[in-house]
Amino acid sequence: MGDDGDSTECRRVVFVTVGTTCFDALVRAVDSQTIKKELFTKGYTHLVIQMGRGSYIPTKSTGENGSLDVHYFTFSSSIADHLRSASLVISHAGSGSIFETLRLSKPLIVVVNEDLMDNHQSELAEELAENKHLYCSRPQTLDRTIADMDLKSLLPYSPGDATPVAKIINRFLGFLDD
């Protein structure tokens, strides 16, 4: 145990994605020592950050001396590969990223970008969090969300369940929830 041969078996990757947007607040949050330490304490070994159009550059590290191995990139044609290899996904509130991650049955924390006007994405994330399919957070509360999360409490999302989306559309159109 502990030799290099075991390292791939023990690899637990946190994949952070902002999609095509600029969400420096999320990238800055996951780059903080507080969050990196919290993830490491939870047993994660690697942090891979897809930073999109952002200008904040995270700190790369090799994972030595009891810390996370951290890498970042702007865009990739193989986001699906990163999602598949992740043990935990931390994502912006884009519906494509949310549903692709849920379809792969990956534990998910959605971080809402409060700088967006008229943010219907946050309503979708909050509805799915209410139904225990994912955790919903803000950049400034992400450390607490990670510390308090119990991934065993998350429920699988059935792709045929359009209830959360329908509720948001109904709310948007002015219909009351039952």
Rank of each mutant, 00 (worst) to 15 (best):
K60A: 14
N131C: 09
N170W: 07
S153L: 10
H46N: 15
V70G: 08
G54F: 05
R144W: 13
H92T: 01
L124M: 07
L108M: 01
A86Y: 09
D81K: 12
H133Y: 04
S85W: 12
K60E: 15
R84C: 13
D69R: 15
I57R: 12
K132E: 10
L102E: 00
G52T: 10
S137G: 03
A166E: 11
V89R: 02
M51K: 15
D81T: 11
I57G: 06
N119A: 02
L116M: 10
G66R: 03
P164C: 04
R53H: 11
T145E: 07
S95L: 11
S137K: 04
L142H: 02
S87P: 06
I79A: 15
V89A: 03
T74G: 14
D148V: 07
V111A: 04
S137Y: 04
L88Y: 03
S61H: 01
N119V: 02
I109C: 03
F175T: 06
S97E: 00
I49G: 07
R138S: 12
F73A: 09
G43I: 08
P159V: 03
E127G: 02
S67A: 14
D69E: 15
H46K: 14
S67K: 11
F73L: 14
I169F: 11
V112E: 06
T59R: 10
D161R: 04
F172G: 00
K106Q: 04
S61G: 05
C136F: 04
A80I: 14
P107E: 05
T101V: 08
Y44N: 08
A166H: 11
I57N: 10
S55E: 14
G160W: 00
K132D: 09
S76G: 09
T141I: 09
A86V: 11
S105Q: 13
R138Y: 13
T59F: 04
M117V: 14
K42H: 09
K60P: 12
I168Y: 03
D69V: 12
S76A: 11
D69W: 14
N131T: 06
M51C: 14
I79D: 10
E100Q: 12
S105L: 09
P156I: 01
S87F: 06
L104N: 06
E130F: 07
E126L: 11
L83P: 10
S77R: 12
S77H: 12
E100G: 05
R84P: 05
T141F: 06
P58V: 05
